[in-house]
Amino acid sequence: MRHFTMSSAARRPSRLFRNFSAKIASVPMILTALVVFVGGTLWTVLYSFTNSRLLPRLNFVGLDQYERLWATPRWLVSIENLAIYGILSLIFSLVIGFVLAALLDQKIRFEDTLRTIFLYPFALSFVVTGVVWQWLLNPDFGVQAVVRSLGWESFAFDPLYNSSIVIYGVLIAALWQGTGFVMCLMLAGLRGIDEDIWKAARVDGIPAWRTYLFIVLPMMRPVLVTTLVIIAAGIVKVYDLVVAQTSGGPGIASEVPAKYVYDYMFFAQNLGQGFAASTMMLLSVAIVIVPWAYLEFGRRR
């Protein structure tokens, strides 16, 4: 299995056979990159301009699918939900994650136990999370019923049956599942900060919260950016949680784009709509990722 030895090479072996085993071994990676990631994406974008219904057909209709998409109330609700859910879960998971990490970083006892408790929901699937919170938020038996039985008769908190606040019910479940992970990333970032920065700040008499806000946070920029990107990429993909917790209901009040795509592709047999919707999802991810990738990797060159 020697590919390139000085002695035996009377003539240079052709370039294709240099490093041949490595190339063979990389075939699955090359196929995945080219066929699935690049090919699949281009294919979907291309077919989003056709009127494919049950089967994909190359019958181009221009931007028709997109016009129809943006005229569909269900899609508009999905986008609105995603925006509310996205912005709030970004803010809350970053804030809660950071505060928990900062609290755990105070050289406290039981740190391992507490971290284990905060992180265990992250090991559970979104389906499990959704089903549990569906039960906890059940208006007849769950939190609302318990608070009422304690004497507060008019207490109302039934996100899963109230279409105007249902997305906040989903948000609560998502935060329960995901903040532990954000906390872990933040904790790793905090541990990377030099101990002496803290000492110097203390000597200077800067209160702890200001040290965190104005000295430590700016120094944690790389971790913050990575966390932000990971959360953002996860938000767009949110699907199983909604399916398990609300099935998109009541009515269409908690629909999300990923569910719209799945339902149009595999139930409504309207592939063109599904492709157009998924292309819009791709676009929204690109808006987040491209500037980040440019800042992160473009600068290094």
Binding site: F37, G39, P257, V261, Y262, L282
Partner: peptide
């Protein structure tokens, strides 16, 4: 490509 692909929503590649 592989790393960038990790950020593409799965929905885009489901049908292909």
């Amino acid at each position: 490509i592989l790393i960038v692909g990790a950020f593409i929503p799965y929905q885009v590649m489901l049908y292909p």
